[in-house]
């Protein structure tokens, strides 16, 4: 078991949390979800966040992505300080620096796959880079499905559309929340392979929350949470080392 103290190297971080506390409720009903968490997510790396239920892994991701406000401490995405941003600032952040992949795919049923993929750019009023768009859909292998609506696609295909949607705007960080949670293992592995490839080939930064050791094994680094604290981290994990670490953490 290797306990690594977080090293702060400002320029390399795509997103970082500094002394973050997240407290829900007050008085007797008070729940501390994050206790003084500091973490740095290196640019161009695939980081997995793991931990048992209630460990605060989703909360950490939500705070990092600016979806949830922290109680204390600071969150940065790239050079932008997320803490204290107005709604307009958050909107700008989401348009320019952050991409999301959800467990529930969350595609718009009224739009075709292509329209769904291009939606973030359309919302931001940016012209898609056709070459990059082509690269992305080649990577996720959706070439012949672009005109289909989500209801005509399988779960795996829908999640590939969601991946493409996250990739197409080349965000600073992509946050993936249990992206394989709703897929069978084959489709799940496909998705994880794409994510891995986009990190290696295009230098995309990805942060993934998962409780699946196999999924975590695709990451460059795994950060383990328990009781709202970072308890350990593991570089270049395999499914076995992750499982060992989980057992150790539980024990």
């Amino acid at each position: 078991m290797t306990l690594t103290a977080p090293v702060i190297t400002r320029t390399a971080a795509a997103a970082r949390a500094a002394d973050v506390w997240k407290v829900y409720g007050s008085g007797e009903a008070q729940v501390v979800a994050l206790r003084d968490v500091s973490v740095e997510l290196e640019r161009g790396r695939f980081t997995a966040i793991m931990g048992p239920s209630g460990s605060g892994k989703s909360t950490l991701m939500h705070c990092l992505a600016g979806l949830d406000a922290v109680t204390r401490g600071d969150v940065f995405v790239g050079d932008t300080k997320v803490t204290g941003l107005s709604d307009a600032g958050l909107t700008k952040l989401r348009r320019e620096k952050v991409g999301f992949i959800f467990q529930q795919f969350n595609l718009l049923p009224t739009l075709t796959a292509e329209e769904n993929i291009l939606l973030p750019l359309a919302i931001a009023g940016r012209k898609p880079d056709r070459a990059w768009f082509q690269t992305v859909i080649d990577t996720v292998g959706l070439g012949d499905r672009l005109g289909h609506r989500p209801s005509q696609l399988s779960g795996g295909q829908q999640q590939r559309v969601a991946c493409a949607r996250a990739l197409v705007s080349r965000p600073e960080v992509i946050f993936a929340d249990e992206p394989t949670g709703n897929l069978d293992s084959r489709a799940g592995n496909e998705i994880l392979t794409f994510l891995r490839r986009s990190v290696i080939e295009y230098g995309q930064t990805i942060v993934m929350v998962t409780h699946d050791a196999n999924a975590a094994s695709y990451a460059d680094r795994v950060v383990f949470l328990a009781d709202g604290r970072i308890v350990s981290s593991l570089d270049d994990p395999t499914a076995d080392t992750v499982l060992d670490m989980l057992k150790a953490a539980a024990g």
Binding site: D87, R94, F102, L108, I123, A124
Partner: peptide, 16 residues
């Protein structure tokens, strides 16, 4: 709700 939340998450502003 989910859909609107998603649109907001991928950068749709309040006015939009």
């Amino acid at each position: 709700t989910r859909e609107i939340g998603l649109l907001r998450a991928i950068g749709l502003g309040r006015m939009a």
